[in-house]
């Protein structure tokens, strides 16, 4: 049984790490704003899985009291605090997602594209920003797409 629990823990933590890494990859590498939002959702899922797994106890029941309704009769319970935390995180996550998607819709309407580099280029042309900085942001090989995404999201 302990062997099982140990394997279970390793599998769950490995899954959480994989989700976080996949989500980060989705946020860093693609140039499309929609892909960046999808990566954010994956990253969030990974963190939530890790938090719930951290509060798990192998020998305990779910934190819902049943029939005799006494804490003594229920025996050991799974830690309720990380669960409440993750519940909060999930609901805030959908709020953040909605705000991000609203910005995506607005960028598409204002610029006609979701490509971060194209949006950054057009913003530079329209605002007359320092061409050296924006050109570097748009064309240099080492430019961080995340930074370009931020500038794009700041669009009016």
């Amino acid at each position: 049984m302990t062997m099982d629990a140990e394997m279970l823990g390793k599998a769950l933590y490995a899954g959480a790490v994989c989700l976080v890494l996949l989500g980060l990859y989705g946020m860093v590498v693609p140039r499309n704003l929609m892909r960046i939002v999808l990566g954010l959702v994956l990253l969030e899922s990974g963190v939530n899985l890790f938090l719930v797994a951290a509060g798990f106890r192998a020998d305990a029941a779910a934190p819902i009291l049943t029939a005799p309704f006494t804490a003594q009769a229920a025996g050991p319970l799974v830690d309720p605090v990380p669960q409440a935390l993750v519940l909060t995180a999930i609901v805030i996550g959908v709020g953040v997602l909605a705000l991000g998607l609203a910005l995506v819709v607005r960028v598409k309407e204002a610029y006609g594209t979701l490509d971060t580099h194209a949006v950054a280029n057009r913003m530079a042309r329209e605002t007359g920003a320092d061409p050296a900085v924006t050109a570097a942001g748009a064309r240099t090989p080492g430019a961080l797409p995340v930074a370009a995404g931020r500038t794009a999201e700041d669009a009016p």
């Binding site: 999808l38 959702v41 719930v52 799974v78 609901v91 998607l101």
Partner: peptide, 26 residues
């Protein structure tokens, strides 16, 4: 996975909000 980890509240929230509403919004 949340349901297996004995977190029914979180499982319900993830199913309703994560799988349902987020998908619709996207």
């Amino acid at each position: 996975l949340f349901a297996i980890l004995r977190a029914p509240d979180v499982a319900l929230a993830e199913a309703a909000v994560g799988a349902g509403l987020s998908g619709v919004l996207l």
